[in-house]
Design a protein around this nucleic acid. Structure first.
Lengths: 136, 136
DNA sequence: GGGTTGTATTGACATCCTTCGATGCAAGCT
DNA sequence: AGCTTGCATCGAAGGATGTCAATACAACCC
């Protein structure tokens, strides 16, 4: 049940300056496609709320039975959204008896945070004296 | 031309521990809807590549005429994606003569990175001895 | 002004997504 | 075994999204 996530961004090959970055170099097609799947999973209010409910849970995990009643949506719909979050590698789950518990995969959110972080002393070109100077 | 972005996440009211966080407390409906718009903008490979091309550009800005030919898509399609990125507050643009230049709005990516970052010493419940213990 | 080039908007179409009710499967209980 | 509860999967329906060709708009040049 826990073996279906995307392997996206899977290379953590010891590179200290991990994650090419999105903000530092142009993504190639393949990277963009994989990354887009994860961001797309975050691109829905219901899934964002589900993720935040799961991530902020004290014990680290939540029973589906606690998630479903928090929404004005049918149980199959919630189940579907949880599946998408899981396929994106953002959460994982396990069945224990009658109930299924979900928890955050912090490695994935860490990775996204890293991808969206620009290198420390980035120029940050002051947008005040925009003169000519570029392209074509 | 630069006045149409989402005002999302607009409150930067001096709170040092800015951005509730998504990973620390359940998002409410409104926050989730606003945040989802931004992530949705990132949920497309073309837009991710556009954003990375813009963000990683040396001078800090890129002419549309340099972006369009990098894709196997029509010019209106690229224009449409740029518009979505701009409406999400991720980029901004300015016309200078015949050309239009786009640049990254780093405040927005910073904000997203912050939202996806969990508080420093987070428990990180070791997922090895999963016993009972939760919910309902 | 008229023509040319760069970019945005419009309208149409195919595809994908969110949602639902109905149903199926897993596990516990009597 | 049968019943009940929790969750997932399966179609189907409606709306949203990505793409294009055609067109409009803006700025330059002759």
């Amino acid at each position: 049940m826990s073996n279906q996530e995307l392997v996206v961004l899977g290379q953590d090959d010891g590179d200290p300056a991990c994650c090419p970055g999105l903000l530092t170099a142009p993504l190639d097609e393949g990277q963009a496609v994989e990354l887009a799947k994860v961001f797309k999973a975050l691109g829905d209010p219901v899934r964002l709320r589900l993720l935040s409910m799961i991530a902020s849970r004290a014990g680290g995990e939540v029973c589906v039975c606690d998630l479903t009643p928090a929404f004005d949506l049918s149980q199959p719909t919630i189940s579907h959204h949880l599946k998408l979050l899981r396929q994106a590698g953002l959460i994982d789950c396990e069945r224990r008896g009658t109930w299924v518990y979900y928890w955050l995969v912090p490695e994935m959110t860490d990775r996204l945070a890293g991808i969206l972080t620009r290198p420390a002393g980035d120029p940050l070109p002051d947008r005040t004296a925009t003169s000519a100077g570029a392209a074509s």
